[in-house]
Nucleic acid binder design. Structure first.
Lengths: 199, 199
DNA sequence: GTCTATATAACGATAGAC
DNA sequence: GTCTATCGTTATATAGAC
């Protein structure tokens, strides 16, 4: 309990915003969660919107740069893909609400969101796309549009987290079974993707 | 314009709710979109929540039963998968906001959501999972946990719609380029998946 | 069925004492 | 920095005339 009020508020806001969204979250709810007076939220962050933007920025910074680093790393594809799958799924298991939060929230004001993202500046998967193209020309992997492969890998890793409740429902999994499903998934996915691109 | 007020309201509510979510949507906004008086919303649907539930139910009914039918159809896997990919992506292109809407909204009240879904009763992918297991035993496809394959197919089809803004941003695509990306994707995905599971 | 007017409650935000 | 009290606004919802 050596945390300052500001830290307590920010952590509470992360829990509430990622769960209920910007519109669904209540300042009083965040104050209760942080165990501070509601006025403190305005004292430290001025407005709900500014507090939200801090939370959203933290969420993006937690997931996106690591993804880009893994994608653009200096490794052959057959090593890079299993490593990426393993590391990225591990990362998201620690923050299972972030994928859905990032892709869903704030997309009403497209203009504003684009500006916001540009300011974060977490790079582009350019090196990865070139690597795929090169491997393809050398006949090391099958013919595939590099961006399609990128989105395939991303879809396979991220979707299970974004759609977690629906998946649990459809496959009648409880929390423990879902965790087990993710354990299996790490190995399963690597094999699946490498099979798909091996000539 | 032979539509009744009730129909106009429901269609307007679909546009507003799928775009802004339950908490972000305003009854006045829906009334404006439907070009009716705000009181009519309560006259026909009693409350915001009941109106939302109709919209959410319609959304699920538009996507889920068709998916389950395609999954459980009587077709060999090598025919079923390309057909499923093609038909399901085509369906979602007509309703690009529904995937994100369905997997994100209403998940605060888990208990209530589970009840709601049970009442819709759109079946389970049991037949598909058995088919995969059978194909595997016969050595027609590689060793893979059937549920993993199911989620792989689902992820690859659905995620690009749920994460559309982020994908457009990362790959610097405008609307036209994204549509083109989806055109390519239909063929690309079928090949990708079949490659992945062919021994 | 459709309108205007209004009730009622909740929300974000601020003022000001300490 | 932290609290109480309250302002101003906006939301859902209803009452009642036509």
């Amino acid at each position: 309990m050596a945390r300052t009020s500001e830290e307590k508020i920010l952590e509470a806001a992360q829990r509430i915003f990622t769960r209920f969204g910007y519109e669904g979250a209540r300042m009083q709810q965040i104050a209760d969660e942080a165990e501070v007076n509601k006025s403190m939220l305005h004292y430290y962050f001025r407005s709900k919107k500014k507090l939200f933007e801090e939370v959203y920025r933290d969420a993006v910074v937690k997931l996106m740069p690591q993804l880009l680093n893994l994608l653009n790393a200096d490794l052959p594809l057959e090593e890079k893909i299993p490593k990426l799958v393993r590391r990225y799924i591990t990362l998201m298991r620690d923050h299972p609400r972030l994928p859905g939060f990032i892709i869903q929230e704030l997309h009403q004001n497209r203009e504003e969101w684009l500006n916001f993202m540009d300011n974060l500046d977490f790079g582009k998967p350019k090196k990865f796309l070139e690597q795929v193209r090169r491997n393809q020309e050398q006949g090391k992997i099958v013919k595939i549009e590099p961006r399609q492969l990128l989105i395939n890998i991303l879809s396979l890793c991220v979707f299970p987290f974004a759609a977690q409740p629906m998946i649990k429902y459809m496959l009648k999994m409880d929390d423990a079974e879902f965790e087990n499903f993710l354990d299996v998934r790490v190995e399963s996915l690597s094999t699946f993707i490498l099979n798909a691109i091996t000539p």
